[in-house]
Amino acid sequence: MFEYNFHWRPVLKNLPDLLEAGLVTLEVASLAMVLGIVIGLALALIRLKLRGPLRWFASSWVELARNTPALFQLFFFGFGLGAFGLHLTPYAIVLAGLTFNCAGYLAENFRGGFQAIPETQIRAARSLGMTSAQAYLRIVIPQVIRIVYYPITNQMVWAVLISSLGMLVGFRELSGETQFFASRTYRIFEYFAVTAVLYYVIVKIILLVSRLLAIKLFRY
C-alpha cells in the first residue's frame, strides 16, 4: 500500500542553499523585529499619552495587525499596493508585512508593560530632582524592558515562523527556497521535512540566546 520511496540525497545536496535561505529568514525576521520594537514602543506611548488623530492612527494599526490574518497583511503590501501601481520587491513586501504585524503585537506588550509600572515610581524619581526624561529612561523603561522581554522573545519566534508566508509573495526565504527545490524535484515531503527541522533548530537557538541574554541582563 505504501509505496513511496524516500530520496534524501537531493535534499542534502541542496542543504547549503537551504541554510543560506535560513539566514535570509533570520535576517528579515530580525530586521522586522528591530523596526517592530521601535514602532511598537512609539505606538504604545502614543496610545498612552496622546489624544486625537495620532492616537486613532495608532489604535487602528494595533487593531488591524492583531485581528486580521498575517497573510492578508503581507498581501496588502504585495498585491494591495501593487494595485495602486506601487510594486515592492518580495523582500520589501515581507519586511513591511512582518514589521506591521510585529509592531502591532509589540505595541500591546509595551502598553501592558508601561501600565504595570506604578505612577509612584515616577513620583519618587521626580522627587529626587530627575527630569521627566530621566525618570523614563532610568526608571520606567528598564523595568518595562524586563516585563516585555519574554513577550519579545515569543514575538521573534513568531516572526521567524510567519516569515514562511513570504513564499506566497515570491520571496525566497527558507520556505520559498524549499518550495523552489521541492517543485523541481517532486521530493516535496523530504524537502519540507528537512526545512521543518531547520525552523525548529532556528527557534531553539533563538530561545537559548534569549535565555542566556536574560541571565546577563536581569539580575533582580
Binding site: P118, T120, Q121, R123, A124, A125, S127, L128, G129, M130, Q134, R138, I139, P142, Q143, R146, F218, Y220
Partner: peptide, 27 residues
Amino acid sequence: LGMVFQQWNSFPHLTVLENVALAPRIV
C-alpha cells in the same frame, strides 16, 4: 526637599547602592 513615601518606591531593577547613587550622579 527629600521625600519619603508611604509605599517606599525603591527602584527594583537597581541594587541598593545604585538606588542611592543614581540621582547624585545624574541630577
